[in-house]
Amino acid sequence: MILSDLLGVPVTDPAGAPLGRVADARFVLDGPLDGQLAAARLFGLLVSPHTGSSFLGYERRTMRAPYPIAVVLRWRHRGIFLLRWEDVERVDRDGVHARPGWTRYDATID
């Protein structure tokens, strides 16, 4: 599949209640070596409850200026969280469904 198939799709909890949309897909270079780099494996999805639009780099903790722009973008993405791939039950045409007992993780990186 291609990445665009995942971005922007709706995410629901086990009961079917909407959690938001996929804003980004987090990969971690923790697989076996593939060429010069480790394989990049899908770690989880960043789920944004209010918007599917871009975060313009302000998802990182280190990015705080200029202040007004940072505030606006953080506000638009308030409540964003990381849904680990292990917590995904299945993906189908309606979107991504979380597994019972899933956890809301902190989305920020440094």
Binding site: L3, L7, D24, A25, R26, F27, V28, I109
Partner: peptide, 9 residues
């Protein structure tokens, strides 16, 4: 356990 890469970012 490795470097984090956000695909869109």
């Amino acid at each position: 356990r490795g470097r984090v890469l956000d695909a869109a970012l």
